[in-house]
Design a protein around this nucleic acid. Structure first.
Length: 661
RNA sequence: GCUGGCGUAGCUCAAUUGGCAGAGCACCUGUUUUGUAAACAGGCGGCUGUGGGUUCGAGUCCCACCGCCAGCUCCA
């Protein structure tokens, strides 16, 4: 049947081996996913079908959906130019330059309808390999300036894809035809810079998502709903944990219930410090600017720093400007003014703890015998984050880290990393995070220090990971300019990934602060500094943990561990007695002594996710006990004598790794 | 910071084309004294984010600012 000079395609091969069912969207040729209709490369051996619901098909479905969307958009809004339109983890998007401006919700609906028409028409996707000149002609005819710009950056082979009469510069692969798109939904519209650079013009990005089947799409939308329910901003408000006020934007208030959890987190880490040879310190909030010049935060980090102006500074500024002629003042550029003004400020508010720890280390002489010196600090940090980037507790302007800096010799680095990893795994296990990914970020192009030092530092980090026999990935060139780092990424209960813990080696700050210790050889040596945090920022961790547990904090962290609910006001005195007993044993208990019915009290306590409910009525008073109901087991545990209840709670009030049973 | 959306009682949300600012929950008072997810009645509660404008009249339309949300860029 085949034409004489037609090349063999994956479709031909699959047909020949009777493997081409209606559900096949592409082929895996020697491990690479390609279109069914694309001629096979010379020497292609293994050709296997890719089914619609194969995970490898998803990017094709989504990328093809992006093409169909762009087609629909250009039909509905002539003159709109297209930029990039890739598949993503969550779906796909396409960037547009629309003369009339942005897209509305109604536009999205209209585009979706037009997409359905294109999908129903079942147009085949066709790939064509073209020369740069041919591609240029096609794109010029279409008047697509963004595509033309992109074309010049491409290396051959250059290909275009068509479905119907719509054509796009594209590498592929795609599904065989538009009819294979069974479940597509446009989700939102947002601005995005051309090539992701904020100096470039802003384009309109339309996001969508697509799946192999409507069922899979529904499941995805359901999961988004679930995520919304767990959002720490929503739960934080509902559970009276945190609040925000416009007068201090991006700065959380921890309400009594939230502060209880927050303090528990800090207390927990603090207990570990005692066991792991850390010394906690307390350092100032505000420093003379020159500290940050020494550390390099000024001018490097200046736009993220809050500066503190005093009345004296204001007077000094007034004096300085008063002494200048009108012409001199008028001549000054905006930058000139900013420099002039910042020159009159004396103090800056710390955005990180490291500079003050360097100061502290430098205050006295140290012997090699003092090392490693581990200085921990829960100091409050302030960073001015741009208004658009702040978010709930995960990106704030004031926060504390479970921060520590370890001053040690290069030889001690590996041991310190090993100990740190042990600690991190223990902590994450206590919080119920199980899916942890290790990433080693290595030397960036722009870096400080010689290759020999980097070699040793990277090897120390890698050896430590290997010694623990942990799987890890390497992120080439992703390290900080002052040293390599290990990042720990964890997945929460709904599959989102967070980078919280990190440990990084720093050769820069000890140099800048001229830190030294006296070695065995009686000579001065430069220590290595390790920056490390387990929770990261306590605020961010709080947010991630809240979502991970869906607001149901385990007993050892819960703001209230047990709610004592009276059946009637007759039993209030006994309830108060129980609360006092719990308090005397360090347990957090509250009594609900209102005139509500028991059912209402149970409902209220359950809504607040209290781990244990203790019912108090005639039977309990008589037997000197409580009827306990467990949130996590979701059942009535029945009557228990007081001492048994207290013993149970006392055990659960400890972090899992500290429990005796 | 940029693009787009949103801002009504402590919370969740109503209010027709511009035409008297409302409900439920919470809170307070009273009645009820309760046994495993919401007893009943009454009451309090508003500069509709802020400031300007258009209009006989603005929660609603326009402008500016503040804040929040989704992205982009940047990050613990």
């Amino acid at each position: 049947m085949s034409e004489p000079n037609r090349q063999i395609t994956a479709r031909d091969r699959l047909e020949a081996s009777d493997a081409l069912g209606p559900r096949v969207v592409a082929a895996r040729v020697d491990g690479r996913v390609v279109d069914l209709h694309t001629p096979l490369a010379e020497g292609a051996r293994e050709v296997a079908p890719v089914d619609v619901d194969d995970p490898a098909a998803l990017p094709l479905i989504r990328h093809s959906s992006a093409h169909v969307m762009a087609d629909a958009v250009q039909r509905l809004f002539p003159g709109t130019k297209v930029a990039f339109g890739p598949a993503t983890d969550q779906g796909f998007y396409y960037d547009y330059d629309r003369p009339g401006g942005s897209f509305t919700e109604e536009d999205l609906r209209a585009i979706e309808e037009k997409m359905l028409e294109i999908i129903e028409a079942d147009r085949p996707f066709r790939r064509e390999e073209v020369t740069r000149e041919q591609a240029r002609e096609i794109l010029q005819a279409l008047d697509e300036p963004y595509k033309l710009e992109h074309l010049e950056r491409l290396e051959p082979p250059i290909s275009v894809y068509r479905h119907g009469d719509w054509v796009d510069l594209c590498e592929g692969p795609h599904v065989p035809s538009t009819g294979f798109l069974k479940a597509v939904k446009l989700t939102s519209v947002a601005g995005a810079y051309w090539r992701g650079d904020e100096r470039n013009p802003m384009l309109q990005r339309i996001y969508g998502t697509a799946f192999a089947s409507p069922k899979a799409l529904r499941a995805h939308l359901k999961q988004l709903e679930e995520a919304k329910k767990r959002d720490h901003r929503k739960l934080g408000k509902e559970l009276e944990l945190i609040a925000f006020h416009p007068l201090s934007p991006a700065s959380p208030f921890f309400l009594p219930r939230g502060a209880a959890v927050y303090n528990r987190l800090v207390e927990y880490i603090r207990d570990l410090y005692v066991q792991h040879g850390y010394q906690e310190v307390i350092t100032p909030q505000i420093f003379d600017q020159s500290l940050f010049v020494t550390s390099g935060h000024l001018p490097g980090y200046a736009e993220n720093m809050f500066m503190a102006a005093t009345a004296e500074d204001m007077e000094r500024a007034a004096e300085r400007f008063a002494g200048q002629s009108a012409e001199a003042l008028g001549d000054k550029s905006r930058e000139g003014w900013a420099t002039e003004l910042s020159g009159t400020l004396r103090f800056g508010i710390k955005p990180m703890n490291c500079p003050s720890h360097c100061l502290m280390f430098g205050m006295s002489h140290h012997s090699y015998r003092d090392l490693p010196m581990r200085l921990a600090d829960f100091g409050r940090l302030h960073r001015f984050e741009r208004s658009g980037v702040v978010q709930g507790l995960t990106r704030v302007r004031t926060f504390a880290q479970d921060d520590a800096h370890i001053f040690c010799t290069l030889d001690q680095v590996q041991g310190e990393i090993t100990a740190f990893l042990d600690l991190v795994y223990r902590v994450y296990q206590d919080f119920g995070f199980e899916d942890i990914r290790l990433v080693l970020a290595t030397r960036p192009d722009d870096r400080l220090g010689g290759d020999d030092v980097w070699d040793r530092a990277e090897r120390a980090l890698e050896d430590a990971i290997r010694a623990k026999q942990l799987p890890y990935e390497i992120a080439e060139g992703e390290g900080a300019f002052y040293g390599p780092k290990i990042e720990l990424h964890l997945k929460d209960a709904i599959g989102r990934s967070w980078q919280l813990a990190t440990i990084q080696a720093d050769f820069n700050l000890p140099e800048r602060f001229e830190l030294s210790y006296v070695g065995e050889d009686n000579h001065a040596h430069r220590p290595v500094m390790l920056h490390r945090a387990i929770l990261g920022s306590v605020e961010r961790f709080f947010g991630v943990l809240t979502e991970h547990v869906g607001g149901a904090f385990p007993t050892w962290l819960a703001p209230e561990q047990v709610a004592v609910l009276t059946v009637s006001e007759k039993f209030n005195a006994y309830a108060e007695e129980v609360v006092a007993l719990c308090a005397s044993r360090g347990l957090r208990a509250v009594a609900n002594t209102s005139s509500d019915k028991l059912g209402a009290k149970i409902r209220a306590a359950r809504l607040m996710r209290v781990p244990y409910l203790a019912i108090v009525g005639g039977r309990e008073v008589e037997g000197r006990g409580l009827s306990l109901r467990s949130r996590d087991e979701d059942k009535d545990l029945g009557f228990m004598p007081l001492d048994e209840v207290v013993a149970r709670l006392e055990n659960e009030a400890l972090p899992p790794s500290s429990r005796t049973r």
